[in-house]
Nucleic acid binder design. Structure first.
Length: 208
DNA sequence: GCGATGATGAACT
DNA sequence: GTTCATCATCGCA
């Protein structure tokens, strides 16, 4: 498999979101353990005109990686429980990134199971928080370049258009109508979370 | 099988 | 204080 070069990532975010489907994400730890996953679900986040994007109001300490060079990782901590990984797109200076939402385990399933604790293979990477845990990605990889020796992508044939599905993004409330989610139609490894029913207001426990 | 909810931390108003 | 680009679990069917 051929490692994708930096030029692959310098593309409009929505275009990159589609091109990433089918590609192989690789993480090689210092210990030598290698894990590979095939990307089957993504979401595009743009700095301009997208209120769900962390960078829509400008650069902050947290989101500065989204303005950086394309082909780097933007990783952040969400909900107090999970790290989510994005691949930065667009030319340097323009905010944009593609959220990795789901993958199909390809190699290193044993390490994934160890990190995720006994779960069936379908649940190993079928969600953005799950796949970062399975791959062993975390804050240490913030801003990491995909042209380096730790994380990278390997090429794979582009998917035929009829296999690429589109829908609104999941789990957001601002700019929720934009159909910027992309996924491999029929893949059992796509996250199952449903988009419809935006459960009204999350009730916060008052007296705890 | 399915929907609702707590956990838990950091950024933002 | 409120809001999250979430996940696992519990309760009900």
């Amino acid at each position: 498999m051929k490692k994708l070069g930096a030029e692959f990532y310098e593309a409009p975010t929505l275009v990159l979101a589609e091109r990433l489907l089918g590609k192989i994400f690789v993480h090689r730890e210092a210990s030598g353990r290698v894990t590979r996953g095939r990307i089957v679900e993504t979401e595009a986040y743009l700095g301009e005109g997208d209120e769900a994007c962390h960078a829509w109001r400008g650069m902050t300490e947290r989101n500065r990686a989204m303005f950086g060079p394309p082909g780097t990782l933007y990783i952040y901590f969400a909900y107090g429980c999970h790290y989510l990984a994005n691949i930065v797109s667009e030319p340097e200076g323009v905010a944009g990134a593609v959220l990795l939402r789901a993958m199909e385990p390809v190699e290193g399933v044993e390490w994934m199971r160890e990190r995720r604790r006994k779960v069936d293979e379908r649940a190993l990477m079928s969600g953005p928080g799950k796949l970062t845990e399975a791959l062993g990605l975390g804050p240490a990889h913030y801003g990491e370049s995909l042209s380096g020796e730790i994380c990278w992508l390997e090429d794979a044939p582009d998917l035929p258009p009829e296999l690429i599905g589109a829908s609104p993004r999941i789990g957001i409330s601002r700019s929720a109508a934009l159909p910027w989610r992309r996924f491999v139609t029929g893949s059992p490894h796509v996250s199952k979370t449903q988009i419809g029913a935006p459960s009204k207001k999350r009730k916060k426990g008052i007296g705890k």
